Measured scan of single mutants.
Amino acid sequence: KLCLVCSDEASGCHYGVLTCGSCKVFFKRAVEGQHNYLCAGRNDCIIDKIRRKNCPACRYRKCLQAGMNLEARKTK
């Protein structure tokens, strides 16, 4: 099974979405830290295992598009 954000090996369902541990922690920190990420490109950066750290804005956008939600952990 692959992470729906970066296509690395998924470690489980986190915040409602099948993700790897790295994307799970990234999403939690992004939401709780209330980061205002900005993409230096055109908001279409490739997010994969190798390049997932290059653009936090696009990675966060991809987390949201996949359906990640901090509240999902509280309902399970």
Score class of each variant (00 low, 15 high):
residue 70 L to C: 10
residue 2 L to D: 09
residue 34 Q to L: 06
residue 4 L to M: 12
residue 1 K to T: 03
residue 11 S to T: 15
residue 49 K to P: 13
residue 61 R to K: 11
residue 46 I to H: 09
residue 13 C to M: 10
residue 2 L to M: 11
residue 21 G to W: 09
residue 64 L to A: 05
residue 71 E to H: 07
residue 26 F to P: 00
residue 42 R to L: 13
residue 26 F to R: 01
residue 58 C to T: 01
residue 67 G to A: 02
residue 34 Q to C: 10
residue 44 D to P: 03
residue 35 H to S: 06
residue 73 R to I: 08
residue 37 Y to S: 05
residue 21 G to K: 13
residue 74 K to R: 15
residue 73 R to L: 09
residue 59 R to P: 01
residue 58 C to G: 01
residue 4 L to R: 13
residue 45 C to I: 00
residue 36 N to D: 08
residue 7 S to A: 15
residue 54 N to W: 08
residue 49 K to D: 05
residue 54 N to G: 06
residue 47 I to F: 03
residue 43 N to C: 04
residue 34 Q to P: 06
residue 48 D to R: 03
residue 12 G to D: 12
residue 21 G to M: 10
residue 73 R to D: 06
residue 10 A to R: 03
residue 3 C to D: 02
residue 54 N to A: 15
residue 29 R to W: 07
residue 16 G to A: 04
residue 6 C to K: 00
residue 10 A to F: 03
residue 19 T to V: 11
residue 29 R to F: 05
residue 14 H to F: 07
residue 70 L to T: 10
residue 61 R to Q: 15
residue 72 A to L: 11
residue 60 Y to W: 10
residue 34 Q to Y: 05
residue 56 P to M: 09
residue 54 N to V: 10
residue 33 G to L: 07
residue 60 Y to P: 01
residue 20 C to P: 02
residue 56 P to C: 15
residue 60 Y to L: 12
residue 54 N to E: 10
residue 63 C to A: 04
residue 57 A to F: 03
residue 24 K to R: 06
residue 1 K to G: 06
residue 71 E to Y: 06
residue 75 T to P: 12
residue 21 G to Y: 10
residue 34 Q to S: 10
residue 67 G to T: 03
residue 75 T to H: 10
residue 74 K to C: 10
residue 39 C to P: 02
residue 29 R to G: 08
residue 49 K to S: 10
residue 61 R to M: 12
residue 19 T to S: 14
residue 55 C to W: 02
residue 51 R to W: 07
residue 12 G to H: 06
residue 30 A to H: 04
residue 30 A to E: 05
residue 74 K to A: 10
residue 41 G to C: 12
residue 53 K to H: 10
residue 12 G to F: 07
residue 35 H to T: 10
residue 48 D to E: 07
residue 3 C to K: 01
residue 11 S to Q: 14
residue 7 S to N: 06
residue 65 Q to I: 08
residue 31 V to M: 09
residue 66 A to T: 14
residue 14 H to Q: 07
residue 58 C to S: 02
residue 13 C to Y: 11
residue 29 R to Y: 08
residue 4 L to H: 05
residue 34 Q to D: 09
residue 59 R to M: 05
residue 41 G to M: 12
residue 18 L to W: 12
residue 44 D to T: 11
residue 27 F to E: 00
residue 2 L to N: 15
residue 62 K to N: 10
residue 21 G to F: 07
residue 36 N to C: 05
residue 43 N to T: 05
residue 29 R to P: 02
residue 53 K to Y: 10
